[in-house]
Amino acid sequence: MIETKNLSKIYNPGKFEVKAVNNISALFKEGEFTSVVGPSGSGKTTFLNCVGGLDQPTSGEVIISGENITKLSGSKIINYRLNNIGFVFQAYNLIPVLSAKENIEMIMLLQGVDENNRISRTNELLNQVGLYEMRNRRPSQLSGGQQQRVAVARALASKPKFILADEPTANLDSKSTSNLLDIMSQLNEAENITFIFSTHDQRVIDRARRVVTLEDGKIVNDNKK
């Protein structure tokens, strides 16, 4: 369970203040498939950065499974991210010199997973995202949709408590988007993994079971389907 309490992120405090996230309190239960939506500048990305421990909030708390991660710093927050949160980036951000298989394996290498478990988990994930046959290809040899599927598999490799995805379909065509959403829905249902997306994409919003709408850093609508 992820809970934010009075979460605020203010840029340029005391000068030309920009309240990117303004006192947001929200609860995301395990297994939810949530879209965070809103116009550009509404604070979606900043909110997810704070929830993911990438950005330090100006005030408020982020409590994940009872642990206040805003109090973690340095190597503790890095380790927390490694073992508990999966990230999917808009631009995929795969390591170009590693193959699809190696990109997925890398996160488990960081975790210190032993070789046998690493290989079996990698193969399992490659099968789940339908890229086992392309496991030895480097990112430059994969399409955008395939790269994003590798990115999803990488995010899942560490067995995270939840996955944060910022505009994961922004660079994909409709077929790849549909394919990616199918995969993520299946993983959500089969493995009860919590997904939180920020998106403008109506196709993603349509598939979400909860839609949180932000405006000027505040939640203006929280709609559960």
């Binding site: 890095i78 380790n79 991210r81 951000n93 170009p96 996160i107 960081l110 975790q111 990488r154 995010a155």
Partner: peptide, 16 residues
């Protein structure tokens, strides 16, 4: 920068 930022995001330590 983006790639290194990604590595930091997913949990690669600063030492590594």
């Amino acid at each position: 920068r983006k790639e290194i930022g990604m590595l930091m995001s997913i949990g690669m330590s600063r030492f590594k």
